[in-house]
Design a protein around this nucleic acid. Structure first.
Lengths: 252, 252
DNA sequence: GTCTATAACTCGATAGAC
DNA sequence: GTCTATCGAGTTATAGAC
């Protein structure tokens, strides 16, 4: 008796929910916004992972935020990890395209900055500054930075798969400009550049505290200009002298 | 009947375990090594957090690795978070002391590197290079780096509490050497320095892949020398010109 | 003080009703 | 194809036996 009543109530509710979902769906279609359930999940999951990390965000919280059923992620993607991989596939192509386009636009010229600064800007701009006010790329790069620290084994494969090509190309371009440095030196400095970039994107709030609010990594244009200036000088420095450090003996 | 037998077996086992633990305990006491259960937990938890992150390591896995009871962490520390706080309290004092001692040893001199390089070495050496082969400080700094990205809210308070003083002192010392820079510029560059340091300590394996093994952040002396050279040049660079970037219009 | 047992959750994943 | 219900394994934390 009671089960039957419950079932009837639930069924009617489900139908109502479906109808209202269909209305929302149609609205999205009309205005060319991300409409389908998979796209909505992809977008919201990316935002939530970038905000709080991969492990801290459950599939339940994602589906709840999307207003879709708990089973939707497994139905459309197969697993939580597969969802993350899809996010990487979607975003990294766009960022890499932007980097290559900017790299092609680099050329020497009297009215232009030195080539080193141009190459660095070409590499850093797509991850730091949002084109057309799209928060997507920046958000994804923060996710990348967090994941690299939070879950090294998972991130290592993803980063290698999607970014080895573009990073290698830029390291090659940098080496051509830096013939005073051995290859090892260029790798080390590119590593420091990555660290500074990740830290800016992850934005753990340290610089705001230390500078009492004078600096904010969310100010993307300032961050880009400061980072290009800093790293360009770092790359131009003479090769490191591994015997120049003298404080090693102070601590008994 | 059976319960009584079981209980007897368990009790004898427990007594045996206690006896052998006491032997180990005495051995540790004799050789002045970390002996007590809390110290053992503190040390192993730090190692495991540094290896895999905070969230990924359960109190169960820590107690299991220590060979102590599951309840030991809550008995001795109160909670998983309190254990982490204890780790921070223990380590940060030692690192900060080392940094202050090295900073005091900095002075200009004809046979010495420039003051800027000395100050940077004083700041970076205690976190990168292990004194007396103790892996503790380095391991802890990796934990710091990971936690800052993995769990910003938890890390922010801990870092502020233990490191605001030393960071402020070093920023002040850097500003005295860098009168060509506005304060904002020094803050930005210190932020990049932190990012490069964290990335080196967290060591997500990126540089090894890109350099095909030519560089390894685990080579602490090389990392320190390269990082000092890179950041010193970065700090000496003229103030960033926020209008020097020209590729902003390439991506329509 | 040290242990077991378990409470009280949350997680990812899935089977099966609709 | 969308949903509910639930499985099984994980988690932190604690009460109470010893």
């Amino acid at each position: 008796m009671l089960p039957a009543i419950c079932r009837a109530v639930l069924t009617s509710r489900r139908k109502l929910a479906n109808q209202s979902f269909k209305r929302v769906f149609e609205t999205f279609r009309m205005s060319d916004r991300a409409p389908t359930t998979p796209d909505k999940i992809l977008d919201l999951a990316e935002a939530m992972f970038a905000e709080s990390g991969y492990r801290a965000v459950s599939v339940r919280s994602i589906t709840r935020a999307c207003g879709v059923n708990i089973a939707a992620i497994h139905y459309h993607f197969g697993s939580k990890e597969a969802l993350l991989k899809q996010i990487f596939a979607k975003r990294s192509a766009a960022i890499n395209n932007a980097r290559f386009r900017l790299l092609e636009a680099c050329r020497p010229g009297p009215e232009r900055p030195p080539m080193l600064e141009q190459i660095l800007e070409a590499y850093l701009r797509p991850s730091l500054v949002l084109p057309n006010g799209d928060v997507g790329a920046r958000r994804f790069m923060r996710l990348r930075a967090i994941l690299a620290h939070e879950h090294a084994t998972l991130s290592k494969g993803l980063i290698s798969k999607h970014f080895n090509h573009v990073s290698g190309t830029f390291i090659g371009a940098l080496m051509k400009e830096l013939d005073h440095l051995p290859a090892r030196g260029v790798y080390w400095r590119f590593h420091f550049l990555l660290g500074a970039q990740y830290f800016t994107l992850a934005d753990p709030g340290r610089i705001q505290i230390l500078s009492e609010g004078a600096c904010d990594p969310a100010d993307a244009d300032a961050a880009l200009a400061e980072l290009v200036a800093f790293t360009a000088a770092g790359f131009r420095a003479p090769p490191a002298d591994h015997h120049a450090l003298i404080l090693g003996t102070v601590l008994s």
